[in-house]
């Protein structure tokens, strides 16, 4: 059993693949059905962001644990244009890609830990963690 998987996000079909792999790993760490759905939805939003805004990137799916409980950590990384204003990007309804503007802000509400790291011109890294209850 591998504890970390890395997948490329280069096409629309990869977004579907990411969803499926995240679902499998979420089941593995014993997330409840609702929590599985939440983390898979967040993964779908973030993978699409990576594709739409940065033209592609990759995701790392890791099973983590802190002794008492297990969890799933997803790291989306790209070398795209980056996000100039992080505060604004996390606001509901704010979008530059013609979407609903819920990708970042919405997925933050779906996970337990959310970390956004971006530098204009260098790329963006989003790390999220969902713990099993």
């Amino acid at each position: 059993m591998t504890d970390a998987i890395e997948l490329p996000i280069a096409a629309n079909s990869d977004v579907v693949l990411v969803r499926q792999r995240v679902r499998t790993s979420a089941q593995q760490v014993g997330l409840s059905l609702v929590d599985q759905t939440k983390v898979v939805t967040a993964a779908s939003e973030l993978a699409r962001n990576t594709l739409v805004y940065a033209g592609g990137g990759r995701v790392r799916i890791e099973v983590v644990g802190n002794g008492a409980r297990g969890g799933l950590r997803l790291t989306f990384a790209d070398e795209g244009p980056g996000i100039p204003d992080l505060e604004l990007a996390l606001t509901d309804g704010w979008t530059t890609g013609g979407g609903l503007g819920l990708g970042l802000s919405g997925s933050r509400r779906l996970v337990d830990e959310f970390d956004l790291d971006s530098e204009p011109g260098k790329g963006t890294r989003v790390t999220v963690v969902k713990w099993a209850r």
């Binding site: 059905l33 609702v34 759905t37 939440k38 509901d92 819920l102 997925s107 509400r109």
Partner: peptide
């Protein structure tokens, strides 16, 4: 719509 999907959509803000 499945319950888990509905709960997630509400959380997402849709």
């Amino acid at each position: 719509m499945r319950p888990a999907v509905a709960i997630t959509l509400v959380e997402l803000g849709l």
